[in-house]
Amino acid sequence: MTRGKRVAPVSARPDPRAAAARAAAMARARSVRGTVRGSREEAQLQPKPRRRKSKFLVQLVVSATVLLCVVAAKITMPDITAKYSGEVLRLMGEETDFVAAFSAAGRAIGGEAAGEAIEELCIAVFGSDTVEISTTVDRTDAVYSADTTPERVEMQQQILGFDYVCPVEGELSSSFGYRDHPMAGQERFHYGLDLSAEEGAVIRAFADGTVLAVAESTELGKYVEVVHANGYTTLYAHCSRINASAGQSVKAGDPIAEVGSTGDATGNHLHFELCCDGTYLNPIYYVV
C-alpha cells in the first residue's frame, strides 16, 4: 500500500502546485534525493502562471462580449429577441415536466405507492405517447375530440359578469366532459352540453351580444356563434333553422335558431358550448 505523501489525481487539477507535488512524490517513490526542488523544476514552473493569466483574460473578454451582444440585441430588437427567447424556453421546458419528474422521484423513496411513482417518473421524463399538446383547436373538432387531453378546458365555475338565460327549454341528455361518443363508439371529450328538445323548439341567445358567425359543417350541422362581453362566446349547434344573421346584435333571450338534428347528431337536441378566450367552460353551472 502506498501511503505517505499522496498524489492528486492526474487530470483534475492541472496547476503548478500539483505538478510540484507530483514531482516530489515521484522523487520520493524512486528514492532520489536533492533534485526535486532543483532549478530545472523551477524553470518549468515559470511560464505556466503567465499562460494561465492570459487564458483567463481571454475567457473574460469573450464572455463580456457575448453578454454585451445579447443586451444590445434585447434593447434594439425587443420583439425578435422575445420570439427567440420564447423558442428557447419552449424547447427547454415543453418536453419534460420537471416538477412532476422530481416529485415522482421523491414519492418513489417515500414509500407511498412507489411502483406508480416510478412509472410516473418515466412518463414525466420521457413524455407520453398519448398526450398531444395541440396549439389550435379546429372548429369542427371542437365538438368531439379524439384522444386529446383537454388542454383548453376549465372545469371550475367562473363568474360571468353579465346576465344570462337558459338557451332552450329541454332536458340535459349529455353533459360536459368525457363520454362515450354515440357515433364513434369510443370515449371522447364532449366540449359542451346536449339539451334535448322537440324539433323546432326555440333557441334563445344566452346573453347580450353580437352574432359572430352563422355557418354549417358536417359535424355541427347548422350552427350559430355569438360573442358576448368579457371575451365569452357561445355556440349553438345541430339547429334545424337559424333565424339570426352574422353581425346582428342580440339581447339575452332573443330567439336566434330552432332545435334540429343537423350534422353529427343522434336526435333533436341543442349542442351548447361556452367558451372564454379559447378555453372551454362547463356550461352546466349557468344552464338550469
Binding site: 422530481f102 414519492r107 417515500g110
Partner: peptide, 17 residues
Amino acid sequence: LSHFGTRWELCYLFGGV
C-alpha cells in the same frame, strides 16, 4: 423529506431533487 411528503406535497419535489 420524502417521509414528510404526505403532509406537504412540496416535500416530494425537494426530496426528489
